[in-house]
């Protein structure tokens, strides 16, 4: 267990491992995203009330789900970086922020586009949508805060604190539709009890959620690789890699 923990702290090991993982995970992820989109767009029945506009669910819900889960990854990485001063945790936290921001942006934009034909409005300041907007700003805040510091150790500390404080927003987003009167409907997929979405629509949705999780892992590794190289640029292994690959 501890040897694995220490291995994760080793930049060249993680760089090589991530390269090996990405070589097969990235093509699979892209294929799954395309397959899921085709399934959702063409091979699922329309909804009895919303017709075809509901097909936006196959990107809106996965993006939102992974944006929320990604925040926990960022906050946990932040906590590890605060407690153990582990460089890789700091790098993982930094790598999560732009991905989370991108996914939250997708959830907000697709939700807005979906709202127009169904609710009759692009935007409404209800609890779910507003708390999701706050999540977007939290992610952007971590990105900006990190850039604001010259000293990377200080930046990591400040970002870790911000992301830990922001975790309170995640259960609020999740429960907002139950706690307050909102325009947004409650969740259709439930951990306990039956889901209120027909199986013919549930399976492509679950498929798409898994594909978005894979996308998150891919993007996280890709971002971490850049960050690792930039921080380790004085070490022998990065310089060897640069002369070998970037020399031409």
């Amino acid at each position: 267990m501890w040897t694995l923990f220490h291995k994760f702290g080793s930049p060249p090991w993680l760089y090589r491992l991530s390269g090996a993982i990405l070589r097969w995970l990235l093509p699979i992820t892209l294929l799954a995203l395309v397959a899921g989109a085709v399934w959702g767009l063409l091979f699922t029945p329309p909804d009895f009330r919303q017709g075809n506009s509901y097909r936006i669910i196959y990107i809106h819900v996965p993006a939102a789900v992974v944006a929320l889960a990604g925040y926990y990854v960022m906050a946990i990485a932040g906590a590890v970086s605060l407690i153990w001063r582990m460089k890789m945790a700091d790098i993982a936290m930094r790598a999560c922020a732009p991905i989370g921001a991108a996914l939250t942006f997708v959830a907000l934009v697709t939700g807005s586009i979906w709202g127009k034909p169904t609710w009759g409005t692009w935007w409404v300041w209800d609890a779910r949508i507003t708390s999701m907007l706050i999540l977007f700003f939290l992610y952007l805040g971590v990105v900006a805060l990190y850039e604001a510091y010259e000293n990377k150790a200080l930046a990591a500390k400040a970002c870790a604190v911000l992301s830990l404080v922001g975790t309170v927003n995640i259960p609020i987003i999740y429960k907002s539709v139950d706690w307050w009167y909102s325009l947004h409907q409650p969740a259709s997929i439930k951990f306990t009890g039956g889901s209120t979405i027909d199986p013919s629509m549930l399976y492509p949705l679950l498929f798409m959620i898994s594909a978005f999780y894979c996308l998150f892992v891919c993007a996280l590794l890709l971002n971490m690789r850049v960050e690792i190289l930039e921080r380790e640029q004085r070490t022998a292994w990065v310089r060897a890699l640069a002369t070998e690959r970037g020399g031409s």
Partner: peptide, 15 residues
């Protein structure tokens, strides 16, 4: 998509 094509396709292309 029965009149919803603009919405659905723009959402997918932005994504």
């Amino acid at each position: 998509m029965d009149g919803h094509g603009t919405f659905v396709w723009s959402a997918y292309f932005i994504t």
